[in-house]
Design a binder for these strands. Sequence first.
DNA 1: TCATTTCACTTGTCTAGACATCTAAAACTA
DNA 2: TAGTTTTAGATGTCTAGACAAGTGAAATGA
Lengths: 240, 240
Amino acid sequence: MIDRYSPEKIYMQISKAIEADIQDVFEPGDLYLSEKVLTEKFGVNRHTVRRAIEELVKQGILEKRHGFGTFIAEKRLAYCIKGHQRFTESVEANDLLAESTVLNKKVISARGGVAEKLQLKNNDEVIQVDSLRKVEGKVAALITHFIPKDICPAISEKYESGSLGEFLKAESNIQPKRISSLVSSAMPNAEDSFRLGMASSQPVLKVKTVNEDTQTGRRIEYSITRFRSDMIQLEILINT
Amino acid sequence: MIDRYSPEKIYMQISKAIEADIQDVFEPGDLYLSEKVLTEKFGVNRHTVRRAIEELVKQGILEKRHGFGTFIAEKRLAYCIKGHQRFTESVEANDLLAESTVLNKKVISARGGVAEKLQLKNNDEVIQVDSLRKVEGKVAALITHFIPKDICPAISEKYESGSLGEFLKAESNIQPKRISSLVSSAMPNAEDSFRLGMASSQPVLKVKTVNEDTQTGRRIEYSITRFRSDMIQLEILINT
DNA sequence: TCATTTCACTTGTCTAGACATCTAAAACTA
DNA sequence: TAGTTTTAGATGTCTAGACAAGTGAAATGA
């Protein structure tokens, strides 16, 4: 099974063998073989097996849990590679993706980027809302909204789900309008990759948006959206 | 220097110590201490030092070259974190970024995505041009263009640098117009991360663009741009 | 019954050493 | 001088073994 005279390193041979093994026999979510079993199966040292597994974890194919075992990762990267079935969203749409769940709400003091984008003074009160957006039942994005508290204090109590834009219209007679969007690519922090249910080795697509009120011109919302890069791509629409 | 009774793992202690050491004493591009020296300095096994260095390589702070040594990485992540000094480019602009260098040109057979986007039959001839775009002398993006060969065979010989759009106008009396852009985030392949001079642990921002000729409506160019995520962010312009 | 402790098993960390592979420069040779 | 070979030193791979730390279930206790 292992060719010790091949120029290909043993850990890479094992890594590929495991990858093939997974696709033949295992399902996403299954517990995979332990390091001890693999050590005996391939006739190599445990550290070599660990190195092979490390490759697959890096690729998002396996996941480990200290003291418990190694798992076949839920579809992720494979999803994207197989069918190029990524969802295409438009940044022109004010409220992306249908389903929405609020994760938490809190009042913070404006500072740095938030104060700047919302044109507030430091320590002005801002409501922060973190919410999860799903597509076909799967988590696709994580959005952090910042809204000056005086604009719509009702958010803290009432807003639970659905479109935040619609909520603002209904509660505060405000017509939000997107005035700028900045798109970038970055690695997710540990919390975000966990919430998005994705491998921490995969990047996210970040969109920072500022909305103002059509009538008054006041900045009313700043949001940072992190899309799962294996699920979502953005389409830029052209106005002709 | 190392606390063997701390709950913090030794390799993490060393990793942090090295990180501090780098910021105090070393400059980007410098050759760092060898594993042997670090082994003696910290009084641990070589594998433990390697594990510590691995962390920093993952973070894009150090870089290794087999058989030569370990280097302080050129500014990258730090660059972005420190000043938020990323360049902002607009996807509306047809030719992003001033300086351009052609890396290679070749004629290929259309298939898959290329054939589809350019609305060609399989095996139709397509000219592929890879070029490097710089901002302030630094590599910022890598672009792969695909142009049906019959539209402008002169590219193979004549096109050397500058705007490909301008070249097409001059040579073939064509008015390119962007008809769609898809933006996504992904990890770079080994070749791309090398050419972009970035850590392979950092993602790229990918933009796939299709251009057509204003007059005939024919698809004349399909390009895939990979931006260094630590240098470039895209601004979405709003036409009001 | 329910809470606690033990236990078997998992992955994680660290050590020690051998040999492979790669690099750049020094030494050598024509 | 120019090209080749050697060599020292760097990182890369693999082995072997010990102990740490986390998990979940089984055994134990009140």
